[in-house]
Structure formats: C-alpha cells, structure tokens
Amino acid sequence: PLQHCLFVALLSQTILDNKGAYTALSTLENSLFTKPCSLSSMECCTISFSVPKKCQKAREHFATVRTQLESLKTKFPADQYYRFHEHWRFVLQRLVFLAAFVVYLESETLVTREAVAEILGIEADRERGFHLDIEDYLSGVLTLASELARLAVNSVTAGDYSRPLRISTFINELDSGFRLLNLKNDSLRKRYDGLKYDVKKIEEVVYDLSIRGLNKESTVGAGGEK
C-alpha cells in the first residue's frame, strides 16, 4: 500500500505537469495556423510594393504569439525547460522561421538569435529563463533557406530578376556558415543535408537568368552583384 501511494504520487505529478503545457501549446499552434496564410499570400506579391505592408501585418501577429508564449512560461517550473522541450521545440522552430522570413524580407539579412528571441518575447540565454535553443534557431534558419529557394523561383515568375541573385549571395553565405558547424548525427544534421538542394535550386535559377542575359537588365537598376 505504501508503494502504491508512492507510485501514484510520482506519476500524477509528472502528468499534471504535462497537461498545463499542452493546453498552452495547442492555443499557440492554433494561432500559428492563421499566420502562415498571411505570409504565403505575401510571396505571391513579392515584387509589388506591398511587401513592407505585409511584413508589418505579419509582425502584428507576433504580438499574439508573445502573449501565448508568456502564458506557456507559467505552466512549468522555470528550471525544467528541457524536461518539456520536445513539446514546444517544433513550434519554436516554426516561429523562428517566420521571424527570420519577415526580417529577411525587410532587410535581406539573417536574423540574429537575439533578434528572434526579442520578436518572440523570450530569452536568448538559458540562464535568463525561457529561451530559444540554438538548435531550434538553426533549424528555423534552414527552413528559411528552403522558403527562399521557392521565393527565388516565384520572383522570376513575377518578373523580378534581381532578387534571385541577391538570394543566391545570401544563401551561399548561409551555406558557408553552416559548413563551419560540426553537427552530430541528429535531426539538425538531417535538415542541414537538405540545404544543398536549396542552394542547387537557387543556382539553377541564377544560371537560367544568366544564360539568357536576364540578370543584366535588372541588376543595373537594383545595383546588384557585378
């Protein structure tokens, strides 16, 4: 009987801990579903002047995310982040990607880890509380790379010939950055292995443009590569 009580006490504690986090997460995920919609419509009109406006709108959505992450933080003991990490890491990766995409469209630079953390209203350092794990950040960035490959194709369709060239420079730099990392044989490594296909895809687009001389006419105006 003593042992029974022991077991039940131990387990019910673990399960209760999980439940709070789950409800907070499901609301978070719900708000996520509305967000990619607004972003993917953005891709279609990348060359139109509405990009800054769309980015503005996307940034508004992050306010919702921030409040929901805020409530998630209260659902578990602050020093046990990694105990429940699996529950929210994919959501965070997705959010990193969305933040990185918005920042890229705004400034054509890679968002820093600190900046993502700020956009999401969380910390960049583990010591300071609910934070963004480096692997999740890098995974999100890799998702950005695939999305940029898509954007390169679609911007050509939309008649913007200079953007693929800029994307190509960016993604090459990203690629050499990732090549500095000694990755273990884990999920991040698998995601990284996909990066070369994104690079390839973008190179093909650039090739198609160069061979037809299409890169010249627009780079004059955009002040591009060479």
Binding site: L110, I134, L138, E173, F178, L180, L181, N182, L183
Partner: peptide, 12 residues
C-alpha cells in the same frame, strides 16, 4: 553572419 556562425560552432 560568419562571426555568429563561428560562435555557434563553439557553442555546439
């Protein structure tokens, strides 16, 4: 970008 990736390398 490269500097930050160098610090990522160290961290990982």
């Amino acid at each position: 970008l490269m500097t930050s990736f160098k610090s990522f390398q160290l961290e990982l």
